[in-house]
Amino acid sequence: MQNIFLKSDCDQFVDRVNNLKSDSQPLWGKMSVDQMLAHCNVTYEMVYDNIHPKPNLFIRLLLKMLAKNKVVGESPYTRNIQTAPQFIIKGDRDFNIEKERLIKYIRKTEELGEKEFEGKESLSFGKLTSKEWNNMFAKHLDHHFTQFGV
């Protein structure tokens, strides 16, 4: 698995973002490329921007029991995996804006580094190790870039 804290791996992710075109078509799934970029940005918004509410205690408990290992583990996501409601993007988005936002988030995560994420709390899963943060970010990006053939 790639490491979102290493410059060389982040360069590869950014190259993949830059290989997307506004008319890129998915190999599977229903999202358009602009929706996919906005969808990928949600993961970073939950870390850096205070725009998504923290799930209530009951929902967090369910997420920890039912979804955490799939999300932060090392196994890749399967095609057409169900997504959480806050990750569903409806309507069109500006491709260039979403693309630039994602690149900035990737670079910000790289610059902050592994130590910043060790024990950092996730809105949904509580405290995670830097390895769990890496797994979540890297495999999510890889899944959707593969979905769009880049």
Rank of each mutant, 00 (worst) to 15 (best):
Q2K: 15
Q2V: 14
N3G: 10
N3V: 02
I4A: 09
D9P: 10
C10P: 11
D11H: 07
D11E: 06
V14T: 07
D15E: 15
D15R: 08
N19E: 02
D23V: 00
S24P: 01
G29N: 01
G29I: 00
D34K: 01
Q35T: 05
M36Y: 00
M36C: 09
A38D: 09
H39I: 05
C40R: 00
N41T: 05
T43I: 13
T43S: 15
E45L: 08
D49I: 13
I51C: 13
I51S: 09
P53D: 14
I59L: 15
R60V: 04
R60P: 09
L63Q: 07
M65N: 08
M65G: 09
A67G: 00
A67S: 15
A67L: 05
V71D: 13
G73L: 03
G73E: 02
Y77K: 11
T78S: 10
T78E: 09
P85Y: 01
Q86E: 13
I88R: 03
I88E: 12
I89G: 14
G91D: 00
R93I: 13
D94T: 10
F95M: 10
I97L: 14
E98L: 02
K99M: 15
E100Q: 11
E100K: 12
R101Y: 05
R101S: 07
L102N: 07
L102W: 00
Y105C: 15
I106R: 00
K108M: 15
T109Y: 14
E111H: 14
E111G: 15
G113R: 08
G113I: 05
F117P: 01
F117G: 02
G119R: 07
G119M: 06
E121G: 01
S122D: 11
L123K: 11
L123R: 14
S124I: 03
T129N: 06
S130W: 14
K131Q: 13
W133V: 00
W133M: 13
K139Y: 05
L141R: 08
D142H: 07
H143G: 08
H144D: 12
Q147Y: 09
F148K: 03
G149L: 10
G149N: 02
